Amino acid sequence: MVSLLRQQYQLVRSSRAVMLKFIAEQNVDVNTPVPAFHNKTVGFMLLHVANVYRHWLGNFGMGNGLGYYDDSAPTDIGAIRDAFDDVDDLVNAFFNKFGNDLDLPIIGTISGGRQFTFTPTELFTHVITHEFHHKGQAMSMCSLLGHTPPDTDLIRT
């Protein structure tokens, strides 16, 4: 089953690449606050996505104690690409660790001392659906900033 999840993640990466290429080619200012999104920026949204991967796969899933990207600081497309390169490495490490036991219950504590149990499959599903949700928001933000985004939901191989 890990082979299927790896293939699925390659499709996620392909869609992400279309988005990042668009942002770079259009010179989207990833630091411009967008009022319709509570004055968050495209940079905030994308680093938030990377942080969620770090939190759920790296820290909750693998107990790594990873720090987080400062999603409130000014950034650029290069730093965002670097963050997603780190995410790719993290996902690979996650698959390497749990690939033979994707139904293993992982018990962890999150903010407020709340304890949860999730499987690697559940954690992976959460982070990729979360990415697609926020990718859509980032593309909407680009549109509100005057750029016409490409369709990033098409599956490309």
Rank of each mutant, 00 (worst) to 15 (best):
D153A: 08
K135W: 07
F44E: 05
H55V: 03
I106G: 01
V42W: 12
D151I: 15
C142F: 12
L104V: 11
G108Y: 15
G65K: 11
N96S: 10
V42C: 10
I80N: 11
T148V: 13
P74V: 02
R6K: 15
L46I: 05
H126Y: 14
R54A: 14
Q8M: 12
G136E: 04
F84W: 04
S15V: 00
H133C: 01
V52C: 11
I155H: 07
A79F: 00
T152A: 14
Y69K: 03
P150W: 13
A36K: 07
M62P: 05
I106D: 02
I106M: 01
D71K: 12
N31W: 09
G67K: 12
S3N: 10
G61L: 09
D71C: 06
L4Y: 14
L47G: 01
I106E: 09
N39K: 14
I80T: 10
A138V: 15
Q7D: 13
T75N: 04
D88P: 04
E131M: 12
L20H: 09
G65L: 08
G43A: 04
S14Y: 06
Y9G: 01
N51Y: 11
Q8I: 06
Y68N: 08
T157L: 11
M19F: 09
L144P: 10
T129M: 10
G112F: 06
Q137R: 03
V42M: 09
L20I: 03
H126Q: 14
H130Q: 08
M19E: 05
P74H: 00
D153P: 00
R81I: 04
L154W: 04
V91Y: 14
G61S: 06
A79C: 02
G136Y: 07
E131Q: 15
A24D: 08
R13V: 13
V2W: 05
L123W: 08
I155K: 05
R114Q: 09
H38L: 12
A50M: 06
E122A: 13
V2L: 08
H55C: 01
I23P: 03
N31S: 03
A17K: 13
V127M: 08
Q26G: 00
M1S: 13
S111D: 12
V127E: 07
V42F: 09
R6W: 03
G63D: 08
H133Q: 12
A83Q: 03
H126F: 11
W56T: 01
G65C: 06
N92W: 01
A24P: 00
L154H: 03
T129E: 13
V127F: 05
N100T: 11
G99A: 06
R54W: 03
T32F: 07
D82Q: 15
Q7Y: 08
G61N: 04
D71G: 00
F95Y: 13
G65M: 02
R16V: 05
V18G: 00
F94Y: 15
T121D: 08
V2Y: 09
